[in-house]
């Protein structure tokens, strides 16, 4: 797929941030560029600074957390340091890990409307955007239910709808499925994949479990100790024998591919990121031998 890399939607230069009263910086010298329409996966071991980086994207850092932010960060053409979170919220939607703690209202549709109400959008437009967002995320039928009556997966889709209704350029999701069961998680990934492909919304997904997500990604960023250690096309990154990948937990089929390659098996084309891609490679080898 051709990407029209003209204007980055997120760009950071030497971004370094230290929480108030923290002994050392949580992110160090991070310089990344995320193009419009990309599906970006950010991963790395616990405590590597992934969540901190997400908080910079909509200005929670530095406006909510304070602390010291050095370097430059531009999101949707705005300098984050100069624009408060409520302004950034129009361009960047953040979805958090715990579905329970990001829904406030007593009905689903009221929650989805929350951001638009804050922005003072006229009632008719709120109604049409809320309905639209609920339909895309598949929660329209649940619109009158209370959040605590829903499953974790449904709650998380409400959270996605509530940022989607604001029609942002970017949706950032910080480990959105860690409390969900596999089926609930799969549905979330399918929804965000659709938002990316059909609506062209830039997706930034923070996730440990590459096996479930890497197949969707155009761009992967691997962090460790607050630094970006590897970055680029996932097919290239996961093809490398880089020892630093071991700690990340690459998908099992990708690992299998690497083992077989080390055994001397000659594969063609790019590294497989999903069972389907790996199966295709195995089939090709067996066919060429026939």
């Amino acid at each position: 797929m051709v990407k029209y890399a003209t204007m980055p939607v997120i760009e950071t230069r030497n971004l370094t941030y230290t929480y108030p009263e923290a002994a050392k910086a949580s992110i160090v010298d991070v310089s990344i560029r995320i193009e419009k329409g990309e599906f970006v996966l950010i991963t790395g071991p616990s405590g590597c600074g992934k969540t901190t980086l997400c908080r910079c994207f909509n200005g929670l850092i530095p406006h909510f957390y304070h602390g010291t932010l050095e370097g430059e960060i531009t999101v949707a053409g705005l300098n984050v340091k100069e624009h408060p979170t409520y302004e950034m919220a129009k361009y960047v939607g953040l979805v958090f890990q715990n579905p329970e703690n990001q829904l406030f209202a007593l009905s689903v549709e009221k929650d989805v409307a929350f951001g638009l109400e804050n922005l003072g959008v006229p009632r008719d437009e709120i109604r049409s955007r809320v309905d639209w967002a609920m339909k895309i995320t598949g929660i329209y039928e649940l619109r009158e239910r209370a959040p605590y009556e829903l499953s974790g997966g449904q709650q998380q889709r409400v959270a996605i709808a509530s940022v989607l209704a604001m029609k942002p350029d970017v949706i950032v999701l910080d480990e959105p499925t860690s409390f969900l069961d596999p089926l609930g998680a799969k549905k979330i990934f399918e929804v965000i994949h659709r938002l990316n492909r059909e609506l062209g919304i830039t997706i930034v997904l923070v996730e440990h479990r590459l096996d479930l997500t890497v197949k969707y990604a155009d761009h992967i960023i691997i962090m460790q100790d607050g630094k970006v250690i590897l970055e680029g096309d996932p097919h290239k990154i996961l093809d490398s024998e880089d020892m630093r990948l071991i700690g990340v937990g690459i998908p099992k089929v990708t690992r299998l591919y690497q083992l077989l390659k080390a055994d001397g098996v000659k594969f063609h084309g790019k590294v497989p990121l999903s069972p389907e891609e790996m199966a295709e490679k195995v089939r090709r080898i067996l066919k060429t031998h026939d």
Binding site: R55, N58, Y86, L94, F96, G115, E117
Partner: peptide, 19 residues
């Protein structure tokens, strides 16, 4: 919760509307 509220434009001074 506060973090999530901030991220959804809580605190804009303009007059709030209601669904």
């Amino acid at each position: 919760l506060a973090e999530a509220m901030e991220s959804r434009a809580w605190g804009v001074s303009k007059k709030r509307t209601n669904l």
